[in-house]
Nucleic acid binder design. Structure first.
Lengths: 216, 216
DNA sequence: TAGATTGTTAATCGATTAACAATC
DNA sequence: TAGATTGTTAATCGATTAACAATC
């Protein structure tokens, strides 16, 4: 692993920190200490300080971290300079819910197209997002420079869809289908496996919640 | 940690194994080797063998694992003997999508009630699930023995809802709201943070997918 | 038998925390 | 200054894998 090795976990934490910091800023708070941010994020203060190191942002012993500057530093780390375009594939219940959730919230990471194989849905604009037939994906992906896709199709359709997407320019998938996708090495897949997650919750509701490391 | 310490990760893997094994069984496959299951689950063969130890199930060098017996062993580990009841709180787009997704699929873990604060929705049956006003949660939770809840309310409502649920008998939460919930120590929370996940995917789509340990 | 796979331990790996001199 | 917090290293922790005798 190179010196600049960035783990998946730190990226997740940075994304969370950024949201928490933005909310603080809206409340008029301007500085924050590592232990405050740690409490909000559910991690240890040492973890926060280490993450700040990774971001390359320095605080001061007296004022802690300046929130606005810190957000900028996280932006530099997480955000693409040119912006990224997201597509949602599968406009069933879940796909539409996610379209509503993500629809045009951030300029830097915006949902710009939806796809389905139901002819009824095609051509319509749902939550401000234009809907195409799946077969049009290669063309639209090229036009709109789609690099990231959310898969919300039924389980049996997920692998063929993933194949189609990765043959276009897609390099990242957020997969809600209860299937492990086979993709090329250079494609990143994050599985949102709701069935597995619910079973985990049910298990620990019964067996008792395990102590987590970060929570002293 | 006691000798019987069971981590969150192994529970997630067992849940995944079980689904994969069920699918194999439907295809008429009766036995499976550790390396086969490992490939399907995206983990190493050694990991699978260690997990089988944790489950207490023994295979044989010649036939590997007998799928039907293995599923039974996983059932014994993951499932409650008396069944568990799930509620969905927040019947917006996402809540309804999840209701449709989980609605009455498994007898052992069934969604038995939904809650919202919109008077329009109350009294209706959506996807076979009865909908109540949130204020009725304590009563209905007691009647239907609800131990697990899925939170799909807007961010600002999530903490008050979590407070209400944990004051009833709920011991496990699957939280879709982009908020870290404060809950008593004995309540387990699994966060499904879609915004964080999407940002992770966007980052690694750009930076290149990291090598994962399990994937040789 | 011969050979692939198993159960199981020891070694490895990576992430997290504890600790503390430096800092403002 | 006095005191709380920072950046940073070393120690700890837990999870994963490598390895191999035992097995069928």
């Amino acid at each position: 692993m190179p010196a600049t090795y960035i783990s998946e976990k730190i990226i997740a934490r940075l994304s969370l920190y950024r949201r928490l910091l933005s909310n603080l800023l809206l409340d008029g708070v301007q500085n924050v200490y590592s232990h405050q941010l740690a409490t909000m994020a559910g991690v240890s203060a040492a973890q926060v300080r280490r993450d700040m190191m990774a971001v390359g942002y320095n605080g001061t012993p007296v004022k802690g971290y300046t929130i606005s500057d810190l957000i900028e530093s996280i932006d530099r780390m997480l955000d693409s300079t040119h912006g990224q375009t997201v597509a949602i594939v599968g406009m069933g219940n879940l796909g539409r819910a996610i379209a509503a959730y993500f629809g045009n919230r951030k300029p830097n990471l915006s949902v710009r197209a939806a796809f389905d194989n139901d002819v009824e849905k095609i051509g319509h604009i749902v939550d401000g997002i234009e809907c195409f037939h799946v077969s049009e994906f290669p063309r639209v992906a090229e036009e709109r420079k789609i690099e990231v896709a959310v898969i919300t199709v039924p389980a049996h359709a997920a692998q063929p869809v993933a194949d189609l997407l990765t043959h276009s320019r897609v390099k990242g998938l957020l997969n809600f289908a209860p299937v492990r996708l086979r993709v090329p090495d250079d494609v990143y897949v994050e599985n949102m496996d709701m069935a597995v997650s619910l079973e985990k919750v049910a298990y620990f509701a019964r067996a008792g919640a395990p102590r987590r490391r970060g929570q002293a």
